[in-house]
Amino acid sequence: MEQKKLKHIAIECIEPNPENPRIVFRQEELDSLLVSINKIGVQVPISVYQEGDKYFIIDGQRRFLTCKKLNHKTIPAIVQDKPSELDNLLLMFNIHALREQWDIFTIAMKIPRIKKLFRKRNGFDPTESELSQETGLTRGTIRRCNMIIDLPERFKDLILEELKKPKSKQTFSEDFFLEMERSLKTIKRRYPSFETRLDDARDILIEKYKTSVIPAITDFRKLSKIATAPGNTGIDRNIAEKAIETALFNINIGIQEIYENTVANKYNERKFLLNVDNFAYYLENLTEEEIDDSEIKDALVKIKSIIDKLLIEED
């Protein structure tokens, strides 16, 4: 391997790395760097590889953009050997994704290409675990990426537009779509009859979120709970199906309201019974020493009196 060299390279000879998954660089992220580089210059050289008379950035795109903005003529850079296509892409992940909080969308958009290059190199598709090892991303992140990849194109365009805005101004974050997709996946698995209508449902759910009929993205978790309620709480499947129909297609009713009116009580009851089971198990396994402990004894007397009172009231 050739020895790596430190050079001062003319800004106009440098190009962003075509494999860099980051598409959006928000101003708020660049501003502090701008002030620092203007004050003390570039303290850490960027890394580049050379191809013809151009240099492509491996690491340091924000420093490069900042220097360009500050009209610097050159930038200090370490020239590395040109990596293979797959290595170049994986370098982007290993250098950046672990160091910075990347938008999940930008990562997701590069996953299919990594899979393709991996297949070309190894002759087989990578498993989730292999992808995780190669990219340094957790398996959970890869699963989330797959969910984004499977979204209809119009929603991907919407996410990209949102990402260009400052964080505070983003309405439809990636998290919104991830929460929505998770709940729709649960519905699809349990009620296949909805499958062909899910795309229409997405538009309605987006509208409901826009108009605050769905006020929080965590409400989608309740939609999943409605879908799994027949199995978890024993409520009638038809009731759950009807509730899902309303949640997905009635523009005026929020998920929370439907949840409260259908399955909330059943879930509370289930939670209560589970707690009682745990408590009963604990009581049955109390040692004599513990029973003699005055604090525990007081607590047990208190519980007994509450239970006695409740049962007498019932009689």
Partner: peptide, 11 residues
Amino acid sequence: DIGPFRPTIEI
């Protein structure tokens, strides 16, 4: 992206 001023101008 946000307000009616940029640090670049100050610089």
